[in-house]
Simulated scan of single mutants.
Amino acid sequence: MTIVINMRDGVDERGIRIAARLILDGKLVAFPTETVYGLGADALNARAVKRIFEAKGRPADNPLIIHIADFDDLGKLAREIPEEAKLLAEKFWPGPLTMVLPKEEGVPDVTTGGLDTVAVRMPAHPIALALIRASTPIAAPSANISGKPSPTLAEHVIDDFYGRIEAIIDGGETRVGVESTVIDLTSERPTLLRPGGLPLEEIEKVIGEVEIHPAVKGKLVDVAKAPGMKYRHYSPNAQVIVVEGKRENVRRKIAELVREYRSRGLRVGVMATERHEADEFFHLGGTEEEVARNLFKALRELDRRGVDVIIAEGIEEKGLGFAVMNRLRKAAGYRIVWA
């Protein structure tokens, strides 16, 4: 049985105590962060962490991110903390930034996907911080079945995991909507492994130029040092097609594709920043922040409405747009139409 703990009105101390006890007992608890909902277990309990992989159907070589609530906890997880990590933590933690660092021996191999590095972040959400402080550092990937769109509402987690995990904390809708940005600080130069809720431009203001890993642009890799690099991700049941190009050309191309797919007898959904005629439509919003916040919700909602094809409008790859386009292209399996 899964208990759902309502914290839509804010942190509930009794609910936190219940959830923390479950974490310390080796159980699984889904909880909100500022980015997406996480599926959490005691990061230092190998048996508990293994249950995350089993529940999600996640490949064992896909490392997890450990969530902490205090900077001092970083020294228990990483054997070296370079100056860049201290600068980034001071500027952006708590926040949607994950740093990959050399692993401390006490961190189980299952948590890091067998790697000698560890991915760590400090979430900017009062419920997440309260839960960690009441328990232990928590390993938590997104709380969805592996390969599916990440959850930004407790209802999404309930759809995927009710009856399969011990508890779900309902903290309402997440604020950012895409996962954290991941920076590798174990390479010769700081390297972006995954764009996310903290724009790359902001990071480069603090530590200078950051290299972009080829996996960010879709190149296949043998070893994933961070989530989202190697396997199929963010995909709904419907086929997703991303339309990219100049705004007016994109608008015309979307209308053309809607007519084409409907002529084949398929139900078509469109997710875009302005209205389109289709069987189903989801308005993503007008700013990059709104688009990021609504991205995964749109994919899940159009799936729920039973469309066969989802046509998604591409946006400019700046700021949060970089993360949005990374997720959209992966959701589409790189089925991109240029307009």
Rank of each mutant, 00 (worst) to 15 (best):
M1Y: 11
V4Q: 10
I5G: 05
R8C: 14
G10Y: 11
R17H: 12
V29H: 07
V29T: 08
V29E: 01
Y37E: 11
Y37Q: 08
G40P: 01
A41N: 09
A43F: 11
K50A: 15
K50L: 14
E54M: 11
A55T: 11
A55C: 12
G57S: 02
A69Q: 10
D70M: 14
F71V: 15
F71D: 14
D72V: 14
D73H: 15
A78C: 05
R79V: 13
E80S: 13
E80A: 13
I81H: 05
E83K: 10
E84W: 07
L87G: 11
L88W: 03
K91P: 08
L97G: 06
V100L: 00
L101C: 07
L101T: 06
P102A: 06
K103F: 10
E104I: 12
V110Q: 02
A124W: 13
A128L: 09
A128M: 08
A130F: 04
A130L: 02
T136N: 14
P137Y: 00
S142M: 01
N144R: 04
P151T: 03
A154P: 04
A154F: 04
E155R: 14
V157R: 03
D160K: 07
Y162K: 11
I165W: 00
E166V: 05
I169M: 00
D170T: 08
D170A: 08
G172S: 04
G172E: 05
E173P: 13
E173I: 12
V178S: 00
D184M: 02
P190M: 06
P190Y: 07
R194W: 00
G196E: 08
G196A: 02
P199C: 06
V206P: 06
I207H: 04
E209H: 13
E209L: 13
E209N: 13
V210G: 10
A215G: 00
G218Y: 07
V221M: 08
Y234H: 09
P236M: 10
V242E: 02
V242S: 06
N249C: 14
V250D: 02
V250M: 06
K253G: 12
A255S: 15
E256N: 12
G265T: 12
G269R: 02
A278M: 04
A278S: 10
F281N: 07
F282M: 00
H283I: 12
L284K: 02
L284W: 01
G286T: 14
T287N: 07
E288I: 14
E289H: 11
V291P: 05
R293W: 03
R293A: 08
N294V: 06
F296G: 05
A298W: 03
L299I: 03
E301S: 13
D303F: 02
D303E: 02
I311M: 00
A312H: 04
I315Y: 06
E316R: 13
K318E: 15
G319N: 08
F322P: 15
A332G: 09
G333Q: 02
Y334H: 11
W338K: 15
